[in-house]
Design a protein around this nucleic acid. Structure first.
Length: 381
RNA sequence: GGGGGUGUGGCAGAGAGGCUUAAUGCACCAGACUGUAAAUCUGGCGGGAACUUAUCCCUUCGGUGGUUCAAAUCCAUCCGCCCCCA
């Protein structure tokens, strides 16, 4: 059994073939084997899926969003209810995002100032001022195991000078977050950990500057944000190749908002440890099914008389119990059950994918397994 | 027997002489979705050519016949359906 302090990242094994690594993160609610994929439950719930089924699917950690939870039901409320993991019955590690992504996703309801950001609530139009200290306090009160700094997630495309100012702002905010994190007292003191977020859009020199300044502040882990916001793929890989080599090997690296199955293999290869993405859940609710032989949309009429399971290589509840034909029927008849069943399958798929990646790293056969996966996956349906 | 109404694309339902192959929903067919304002959004949806763009031909608003340069829209007539009174 590996023994190390809460919050520490333990590097278990490096690939001999590439920059990929096997690791483990220690949190108050258990160990997380990396590389890991974290399903997104913005409002503290993975839509449509009971937590017991997430545990069955071997989900290790899930995401929630501090801004959305702050709006409803409120950070104080969650604190009083015993923390988010108690409130939602998940009882396992959770990571909360800071609200920084909402500067991007809710940009039409947002005004960024030097001190913080003014959000207009999408629920009722109320104005809320978010600033670094507030984001940290909310996340601490919510009880997140991993807390993210408030950053500014820029849009794509963005001018160099705007990106540069944004990087400077995110660094300034990161320092304030770091200070508040070690100042503000909460019920879960000493068990929560804080990650900084590297920005800089597609500009490698800004990314490198952002990385060094984040390293100076000294976080428990480092996230790469502001990617997968519409930029061409090669920019993302270019940024990763600039940033990852200068990150310390003894800290976790988290690529925010990524990604698709093929992205996961490629980014693990470059040395990323943690991922999150709405693809398996949101796309599942829109009918997209991820399988070992490619993705497809179960709404398509060709599945009306297809009595096979979604994925011949999957053993999830959906694949065990239901045919493509029935799932096609469910979605056509707007029965809400399809959302749960497709989300659950897609989460199983992502978990199996990460398990395959970890096993490949254990056996040091990552590259061959990656190629095997991509070949089969791109065959499609 | 008397009086009134109505018939539009797969369905519902606008349109009341030219800009109408005909609004809008639904259904149907595709596509998109990457730190979730998302059970959402976008496109297509009479037939046939062409297709990088543009475009062209044919056929449609119950049937038939008319008026008109021009008809889903006006007139006549036939057919179907609905309602009220006896």
């Amino acid at each position: 059994m590996i023994s190390y302090k809460c919050g520490n990242f333990c590097l278990v094994k490096n690939s001999s073939e590439c920059k990929a690594r096997l690791g483990q993160i220690n949190t108050a609610r258990g160990f997380i084997d990396t590389p890991v994929f974290m399903p997104v439950g913005t409002y503290g719930t993975i839509k449509g899926i009971p937590c017991c089924l997430l545990r069955d699917a071997k989900v290790q950690i899930m995401l929630a969003n501090s801004y959305h939870l702050y709006l409803r039901p409120g950070a104080d409320y969650i604190k009083k209810s015993g923390g988010i993991q108690q409130f939602n019955s998940w009882h396992k590690p959770m990571l909360t995002d800071s609200g920084g992504f909402q500067i991007f996703s809710l940009q039409n309801f947002t005004k960024v100032y030097d001190d913080g950001v003014e959000f207009k609530s999408p629920i009722n139009g109320e104005k809320h001022f978010f600033y670094p200290e507030k984001s940290i306090r909310i996340q601490k009160d919510i009880g997140a195991d991993i807390i993210m700094c408030l950053d500014e997630c820029t849009t794509y495309p963005v001018d160099y000078n705007i990106a540069k100012n944004s990087v400077d702002l995110s660094i300034k905010w990161a320092k304030r977050c770091h200070h508040e994190f070690y100042t503000y007292s909460s019920m879960t003191d000493n068990t929560q950990i804080l990650f900084g977020i590297i920005q800089g859009s597609i500009y490698n020199d800004l990314r490198i500057q952002s990385t060094y300044e984040m390293l100076d502040i000294n976080f428990d882990g480092y996230a790469i944000g502001g990617l997968s916001v519409g930029e061409p793929k090669h920019y993302m890989y270019s940024v990763l190749q600039s940033v990852l080599p200068i990150l310390p090997t003894n800290k976790a690296r988290y690529l925010m908002g990524v990604g698709s199955p093929e992205d996961l293999w490629k980014c693990v290869e470059l040395g990323v440890d943690m991922f999150d993405c709405v693809i398996p859940t949101r796309n599942g609710r829109n009918g997209q099914v991820l399988t070992s032989i490619g993705k497809f949309n179960i709404k398509n009429s060709k599945f009306k008389n297809d009595y096979n399971s979604l994925d011949p290589n999957c053993t999830c509840l959906t694949c065990n119990e239901y045919s493509r034909a029935y799932l096609n029927y469910l979605i056509k008849s707007h029965d809400i059950l399809y959302m749960s069943l497709l989300s659950l399958h897609n989460i199983h798929f992502m978990m199996n994918l990460m398990h395959t990646i970890r096993e490949a790293l254990k056996l040091d056969i990552f590259i061959q397994e990656k190629e095997k996966f991509l070949k089969q996956y791109n065959v499609g349906e």
